[in-house]
Computed example of a mutant assay.
Amino acid sequence: MKPKAASRAGYTLVNMAMLLFFLFPFLWMLSASFKTQVQVLSSQHLFFFTPTFKNYVTVFREYDYLKFIANSFAIAAASTAGALLLGLPAAYAIARYRMPYFGLTILIAKIIPGITYLVPWYILFNKLGLIDTYTGMIASHMVIGLPFIIWVMIPFFETFPKEVEESSWIDGSSRMRAFVQMVLPVSIPGIVTSALLAFIFSWNNFMFSLILAGEKTKPLPIAVFNFISGTAINWGALMAAACIITIPVVVIALFLQQYIVSGLSAGAVKG
């Protein structure tokens, strides 16, 4: 075998080993969702078993998971839309008017662990009557998505030529119109990337939902607790619920992966 072919084969094997290493937990979760409780706990049925859809029937029929899916989607979509509505103009202003201190403040807000917000947010929302409301859940999730969107979009707006905007101003276009019709269309990869990641952060958020959500607004990550009790864990149904949480995000990421790669790489090579 030629050295070049041997190197390529070794590179392929290493990539496959790494892929298998990272995919194994997901594959185990997926297979466990089609097993009975006895099969999940038995090492003899790790690879060979008779699939059953009983766990998914349990998830949707006995625990009304469609309601939790609707809650998670509504909260994630609304918080992402709100973060984009506020974050895009903020990122543009920071980039165009060279405000590094504001950018640093946004970075600090992004770095601070979300758990530090729990107590003050609970006290504030309890005073305002926003516990177990969609407004409170959306606002709390925007705390995560908004700084991320601003920080990702700043490099995109910094690379857009200011002269192009100035020429449109001379022709009578307003700043807002130039921003909407000229700057935003060019920044689509960054917008899609930041919006998708903000959506995923909100979809998977657990801490804020655990404290601020109730029966009315309970999202999927909290609904998983339905299968955990003090005496036993329904592993099959738990894995089925985990698959329901994971698969929509995986599908969306696969369809939009070209935007994610181009968006993150564009921000990385900036400057």
Rank of each mutant, 00 (worst) to 15 (best):
M1Y: 10
K2H: 12
K4A: 11
S7Y: 11
S7A: 15
T12D: 08
F22I: 15
F26S: 04
L27W: 09
W28T: 07
W28F: 15
M29N: 05
M29C: 09
A32N: 13
F34H: 00
V38N: 12
L46A: 15
F47M: 12
T50G: 05
Y63F: 15
Y63G: 01
Y65E: 05
F68Q: 05
A70D: 11
N71A: 11
S72P: 07
A76V: 08
A77G: 02
A78F: 08
S79N: 10
S79M: 07
G82M: 11
L85P: 03
A90Y: 02
Y92V: 02
A93C: 10
A93I: 04
M99D: 02
M99P: 00
M99Q: 11
F102I: 14
L104G: 06
L107G: 01
I108F: 15
K110E: 10
I111G: 04
I115S: 05
Y117W: 12
L118M: 09
Y122K: 04
A139V: 12
H141R: 07
L146F: 14
P147E: 03
I150C: 07
W151T: 03
W151L: 12
M153L: 15
E163K: 01
E163V: 03
E166K: 13
I170S: 06
D171P: 00
G172A: 08
A178C: 01
A178W: 06
V183H: 01
L184E: 03
P189V: 13
I191K: 08
V192W: 12
S194M: 05
A195S: 13
A195G: 10
A198M: 00
I200S: 06
I200E: 02
F201T: 06
W203I: 00
W203R: 02
F206Y: 11
S209G: 03
I211M: 07
L212T: 03
F227C: 00
F227E: 00
G230L: 13
G236T: 09
G236Q: 08
A237W: 09
M239A: 11
A242E: 02
C243D: 07
P248C: 01
V249D: 02
V250I: 14
V250D: 00
V261W: 15
A266V: 06
A266W: 13
V269S: 12
K270L: 02
